[in-house]
Write a protein that binds this DNA or RNA. Structure first.
Length: 938
RNA sequence: GCCUUGGUGGCGGAAUUGGUAGACGCGCUGGAUUCAAAAUCCAGUUCUUUCGGGAGUGUGGGUUCGAUUCCCACCCAAGGUACCA
C-alpha cells in the first residue's frame, strides 16, 4: 500500500470539518491557550507559498498545545475592508462586497487544503455589519472619553463636564489640543452650547480637527504616516502632499508613555519593540521661553517657546532657528529682511517633502533681522529661519547651541555665527561636543563645573524660578488621523447638527450600515464617495438612515461622509474571536475573562508601527473602560520572516531572438529576462518547448545550449507576479500534498528569518513522509529494542524542546533522523510507532491521523497526549572522545564514561595515533574534560 | 547617519552553558535495479594535498588548553528610521 496523500488529506479535512474537531469552548477544566495568526486581507491574487508560513507555525503550536492538554483557541478571519476591492470597484463597477466575498471563498479553499486546525465557527470579517457594529461602538466610547493624566487613565467625558462646571479647566491635568484656552467655571457656564462642544472636542479621545494631513491626490484620500514609504504611498507609490483638512483624529498621544512602559511587560521581538520605541520617540528635556526684543514698542515683545533636550547648554545658545512655517516669522521679520525671508519661505514651500528628505546635507536658512533676549544673560540672540527645523515637531523652534549640537554647529559655521564654548577643557574648533557623559559645563554662570545631569536639573530649576521654562517630556508620536475619503470602510456613527457640530449616534442604533452608491469615486464637488449616497441622512426620530432629501437640520441631519481607515477593524479583532457572535456586547465578560489575552501572536514585522501600535492603544483604552482584563493584548509575539522567490533568468541576445545558456554568455551583450519558474527544473535546466509556448514572443527563439541543456540564472527576489517567481500552494498540494508543503515550509529555515523558496527541495520532505508511511506497513506488538527506545526518546526530547523554542526547522531534521534510524533498525514495534505518530501530528496532521487509524484507533489523534521522554533510555555507557592537539580534533577514541581523568589520560597517551601526532614531543599540558573532550597541548 | 538583524560548502541550513564545524535535506558524482525512464536503494560529496597531512565559519586583532559561540575594530547584506532640537 502506497502513501496516497491525496485521499488521506481529503478524508481528514472532511472529518475535521464534520466533527468540528477544533471547535473551542469558552469554559473548560483544561488550562486555556490562545494562539493567533494575523488575519489576511483577502486579495484577488490568492495565496502564494509565502503567506501560510506563519499560519503553519501557529498551527503546529496549536496542535501541540492540544496534545499537551490545553483548551486551545485558534481562530481565523478576514481583514476584508481595504483599497484593492475599492479600486477594482472603481474600474469595473463591481460592488466591493461581491469581490470581497469571491476572494474570501478562494482564500478559504486554499486555507482548507493546508489542513489548519482553525475553529472556523468563530470566523470574523471586518466588513461584516455584525462585526463593524463593534468597531463603530468603540469609536463612540472613545468619543465619550477624555484622558485624565493625574489618574493616568481614560475617563468618561461627563466627569470632565462636571469638572468644568466646578472650576473650569484651570489646573486640569489632561491630554488635550495644544491650542486649548484656559477658562474658569464662570466662563464655562457663559459659553454657548456650541462653544462648549468645541472645547470638549479638544479633550475627547477621538476628535474632529483641522489637521495637516498627508493627502494623496492619486488615491483621493489621506494616508497615515505608516502608510507612506519614502514620501510616496505604500500602495501604488503615488506622490503625497501636505494639506489642511478637517479629519477625525485618535488621541493616541495620550497613551504615549503607557505604550512605552507596556513594552517592558510583553515578550515581543526586540527589533519590533525598538521600532515602536523609535516611533513614539520620547525625549526628556525642557521648554524654554525666549522673548523677542521689540524694534519699536513693547507690544511687539513675543514669546518664542522652544523645546530642548539640553537645557544644561543654555548659555551656549548663540542664535535661534524657527521653522519657515512658524507663525511668528511674518510678525518679527524686519523690513530690511522681509524680501529675502519671503523668498526663502516660498522656496522651501515649493520643495516637496521628498526633495527635502533627499537633500539633508545642504544647509540653508535666512536671518529674520529680529533678536530674542537670552533668559539669563539678557544678551540679544539673532533669530534665523531654516528648513532643518520641522514645524511638526516640538514647538517648531529651537535654541541653537552650536558648540553642543552638530546641526547647529554646521549651520553656525556656514553662516559665520558665533560659536561660544561652554564646555570645560573641550576643543570645539572642528566639531560640536555631543558627549553627555563627559560633559562639564563652563562659562555658564550658575551652571559652571556641573556635570550634565546636575546642570540639567539646575537649569530647569532656574528657568522655573524666572517663569521662562519648565521640565518637559516630548514625544515624536503624533495623534493618528482616522478619516479616509473612501467607500469600502466602516462608516462613522456620526451626524452633523444644525450648528455643524458632530453628534455621535447612540450605541443601541448600531450598526450604521454602509450605504449603496452609484459610483465609488469622489463626488464632483470633491466630497468622499459616500457623498454619492442618496440615503445617507440620519433621522433622529426613527434612528435610521433616510433619504438625503429629508434633511431639515431639525430632526434629519447629514451623516459623516468619511469612513474609517484599514486599521480600525483590526485593532480589536483578537478579542472579538473570544465571543464572535455576541450581538448584545462586543464580547461577554465571561468570555474575555476566560480567554484573557493572546498567548502567542504570529505575524509579519511590517505591522510594527501600524496595527501593533494602534491595537495596543485600543486595548489600553478598553482596559481603562473595564472591558478587558489585560492592558496588553498579546503576551508573546513572533515575527515570521518572508519567503522570497527564486527567480529564473534567460539571457537574450540584445539584437536577435537568440538565448544563450548562462555559462555561454561570455562577453556578449545580453538582456536578462525573467522566465516562469515552473519551466525550470531542480538542475536549473529550462524546459525549452514549454518556454516557447509560454509567451508568443519566444515562439521562434533560438537557444545556444551547454551540454544539451539551457541553464538559467537564478536570483532571490520578492515573490511577485511580475517576476514570474510566484509559487501557488495549490500546485504543491496537488503534486506533493499539504503535509509535504507544511513540513517543507518549516524545513526551509528559522521561522523569523527570511529565506528563499525553491520548489526543488520539497522532494526531500516528501520522501521522508513516504519512508515514515512504510514504517507502519507491518506493525507488531514486539518489545522495542534498546536502540528503538533510544531513538524514540531522543526524538521526543528534541521535538518538544524545538516546539517550545519555535525552532520548527530543526524538528523536521530530527524526524528524518528518527525515521532513518528506525528504518535501519527494522523497527515494527507499536510501542515506538504509536508515540511517533503523535510527535509528527502537529507538523503533518493528515498522515498522522491515518497512521493513528492503522495503529487501531477510532478517534482523531488531535487530543492524544503528547509522549513524555524518559531520560533512562538516553543513558550512555561509552563516549566517542574527540582527541585534539592544540585545539584541533585529529581522531576519536571510544572510552568508557566510567573512567576518571587520569585513566582517560593514560588511555589516550597510550594510543598509537597520539604518539604519531606528537612525533616525539612531550606534551606541555593535557586537558581532560570527562564526557566531553581531550586536548593535548605542545 | 542612527537603530535592529544577519554573514558557515554549489544551495537551504545545523552545531542548546566555549569542547568532534558542515547534522538534515537539495543538488552533484559513481554504483545497484530497469530494455529504458521515473521511482527506489547503496556509496561519496568544505577546500587543498606530494595522501603523511594542511587550511577553513565576512575581514583583522584579542581572551582561552580550546572560539561559528566571548571581547575590540572594520567590511558587506537585509529591515526600520530619517535634519526629532
Amino acid at each position: 500500500m502506497n502513501y496516497n496523500f491525496k485521499d488521506i488529506e481529503a478524508k481528514w479535512q472532511k472529518y475535521w470539518s464534520q466533527h468540528q474537531t477544533f471547535k473551542a469552548t469558552n469554559n473548560s477544566t483544561k488550562p486555556k491557550f490562545y494562539t493567533l495568526s494575523m488575519f489576511p486581507y483577502p486579495s484577488g491574487a490568492g495565496l502564494h507559498v509565502g503567506h501560510p508560513l506563519g499560519y503553519i507555525a501557529g498551527d503546529i503550536y496549536a496542535r501541540y498545545k492540544r496534545h499537551k492538554g490545553y483548551n486551545v483557541l485558534h481562530p481565523m478571519g478576514y481583514d476584508s475592508f481595504g483599497l484593492p476591492a475599492e479600486q477594482y470597484a472603481i474600474q469595473t463597477g463591481q460592488h466591493p462586497a461581491i469581490t470581497t466575498e469571491t476572494n474570501i471563498n478562494r482564500y478559504r479553499e486554499q486555507l482548507d487544503r493546508l489542513g489548519f486546525s482553525f475553529d472556523w465557527s468563530r470566523e470574523v470579517r471586518t466588513s461584516d455589519p455584525d462585526y463593524y457594529k463593534w468597531t463603530q461602538w468603540i469609536f463612540i466610547q472613545l468619543f465619550n472619553s477624555w484622558y485624565n493624566k493625574d489618574a493616568d487613565r481614560a475617563e468618561d467625558i461627563s466627569a470632565l463636564e462636571s469638572l468644568f462646571d466646578k472650576k473650569g479647566n484651570v489646573g486640569l491635568n489632561a491630554a488635550c489640543d495644544d491650542d486649548t484656552p484656559q477658562f474658569t467655571s464662570v466662563q464655562w457656564k457663559q459659553f454657548s452650547k456650541v462653544e462648549q462642544q468645541k472645547i470638549l472636542l479638544k479633550y475627547r479621545l477621538t476628535y474632529l480637527a483641522d489637521a495637516e494631513v498627508n493627502w494623496c491626490p492619486a488615491l483621493g484620500t489621506v494616508l497615515a504616516n505608516d502608510e507612506i514609504v519614502n514620501g510616496v504611498s505604500e500602495r501604488g507609490g503615488h506622490p503625497v502632499i501636505r494639506k489642511k483638512m478637517t479629519q477625525w483624529i485618535m488621541r493616541i498621544t495620550a497613551y504615549a508613555q503607557r505604550l512605552l512602559d507596556g513594552l517592558e511587560t510583553i515578550d515581543w521581538p526586540q527589533p519590533l519593540k525598538d521600532s515602536q520605541i523609535n516611533w513614539i520617540g520620547r525625549s526628556e528635556g525642557a521648554t524654554v521661553v525666549f522673548y523677542t526684543i521689540p524694534e519699536v514698542n513693547d507690544a511687539d515683545r513675543y514669546p518664542i517657546e522652544v523645546f530642548t533636550t539640553r537645557p544644561d547648554t543654555i548659555f551656549g545658545a548663540s542664535f535661534m532657528t524657527l521653522a519657515p512655517e512658524h507663525e511668528l516669522v511674518s510678525r518679527i521679520t524686519t523690513a530690511g529682511q522681509k524680501d529675502i525671508v519671503e523668498d526663502y519661505i516660498k522656496q522651501t514651500a515649493k520643495r516637496s517633502e521628498r526633495e527635502r528628505m533627499a537633500d539633508v546635507k545642504s544647509i540653508s536658512g535666512v536671518f529674520t533681522g529680529a533678536y530674542a533676549e537670552h533668559p539669563f544673560t539678557k544678551a540679544p540672540i539673532p533669530i534665523w529661519i531654516g528648513d532643518y527645523v520641522l514645524a511638526g515637531y516640538g514647538t517648531g523652534a529651537v535654541m541653537a547651541v552650536p558648540c553642543g549640537d552638530q546641526r547647529d554647529y554646521d549651520f553656525a559655521k556656514h553662516f559665520n555665527i558665533d560659536i561660544p564654548n561652554i564646555f570645560k577643557d573641550v576643543d570645539i574648533s572642528e566639531e560640536a561636543f555631543e558627549d553627555k557623559g563627559n560633559t562639564v559645563i563652563a562659562n555658564s554662570d550658575f551652571l559652571n563645573d556641573l556635570p550634565y545631569k546636575k546642570a540639567v536639573k539646575r537649569a530647569i530649576f532656574e528657568l522655573e524660578k524666572i517663569g521662562q521654562g519648565r521640565g518637559k517630556i516630548n514625544y515624536r508620536l503624533r495623534d493618528a488621523v482616522f478619516s479616509r475619503q473612501r467607500y469600502w470602510g466602516e462608516p462613522f456613527p456620526v451626524f452633523y447638527d444644525a450648528e455643524g457640530m458632530p453628534q455621535v449616534i447612540a450605541s443601541e442604533h448600531l450598526p450604521i450600515p454602509l450605504p449603496e452608491v452609484e459610483k465609488y469615486l469622489p463626488t464632483e464637488t470633491g466630497e468622499p464617495p459616500l457623498g454619492n449616497a442618496s440615503v445617507w441622512a440620519w433621522d433622529t426620530r426613527s434612528h435610521t438612515a433616510v433619504s438625503n432629501e429629508l434633511i431639515d437640520h431639525k430632526s434629519v441631519f447629514p451623516l459623516e461622509l468619511n469612513t474609517m481607515p484599514g486599521w480600525a477593524g483590526s485593532s480589536q479583532y483578537f478579542n472579538r474571536y473570544m465571543d464572535p457572535q455576541n450581538s448584545e456586547a462586543i464580547y461577554s465578560q465571561e468570555a474575555v475573562n476566560y480567554w484573557q489575552d493572546v498567548d502567542l501572536y504570529i505575524g509579519g514585522s511590517e505591522h510594527a508601527t501600524g496595527h501593533l501600535l494602534y491595537s495596543r492603544f485600543w486595548q489600553k483604552f478598553l482596559f481603562d473602560q473595564g472591558i478587558v482584563p489585560k492592558d496588553e493584548f498579546a503576551k508573546k509575539l513572533i515575527n515570521q520572516g518572508m519567503i522570497t522567490g527564486t527567480s529564473a533568468f534567460v539571457y537574450k541576445d540584445s539584437k536577435t531572438n537568440t538565448f544563450y545558456s548562462k555559462n555561454l554568455i561570455g562577453n556578449k551583450t545580453v538582456i536578462p529576462l525573467h522566465a516562469e519558474v515552473s519551466l525550470v527544473n531542480a538542475s536549473d535546466e529550462l524546459d525549452i518547448d514549454a518556454f516557447k509556448k509560454w509567451q508568443p514572443d519566444y515562439k521562434d527563439a533560438q537557444f545556444i545550449l551547454e551540454e544539451g541543456h539551457y541553464i538559467v540564472g537564478r536570483e532571490v527576489e520578492k515573490m511577485s507576479k511580475s517576476k514570474y517567481n510566484v509559487v501557488n500552494p495549490d500546485a504543491i498540494c496537488d503534486e506533493y500534498g499539504a503535509d509535504s508543503l507544511r513540513l517543507y515550509e518549516m524545513f526551509l529555515g528559522p521561522l523569523e528569518q527570511s529565506k528563499p523558496w525553491n520548489t526543488a527541495g520539497i522532494t526531500g520532505v516528501h520522501s521522508f513522509l513516504k519512508k515514515l508511511w512504510k514504517l507502519y506497513l507491518e506493525i507488531d506488538v514486539s518489545e522495542p529494542s534498546k536502540e528503538n527506545l533510544k531513538t524514540l526518546h531522543k526524538t521526543i526530547k528534541k521535538v518538544e524542546e524545538d516546539i517550545e523554542n519555535f525552532s520548527f526547522n530543526t524538528s523536521v531534521s530530527t524526524f528524518m533522523i528518527c525515521v532513518n534510524e528506525l528504518t535501519s533498525q527494522k523497527c515494527r514495534s507499536k510501542a515506538i510507532l504509536e508515540p511517533l505518530a503523535i510527535l509528527v501530528s502537529p507538523y503533518a496532521p493528515h498522515i498522522a491521523e491515518e497512521l493513528w487509524v492503522i495503529l487501531g484507533h477510532q478517534e482523531s489523534i488531535a487530543e492524544a497526549p503528547f509522549p513524555k521522554h524518559e531520560a533512562k533510555y538516553l543513558v550512555e555507557s561509552t563516549k566517542e572522545y574527540p582527541i585534539s592537539f592544540n585545539g584541533k580534533m585529529r581522531f576519536t577514541m571510544e572510552l568508557s564514561l566510567d573512567l576518571n581523568k587520569e585513566e582517560i589520560e593514560s588511555a589516550v597517551m597510550g594510543h598509537d595515533k597520539t604518539q604519531a601526532q606528537l612525533q616525539g614531543r612531550t606534551p606541555k599540558k593535557i586537558i581532560v574534560v570527562p564526557g566531553k573532550i581531550v586536548n593535548i597541548v605542545g
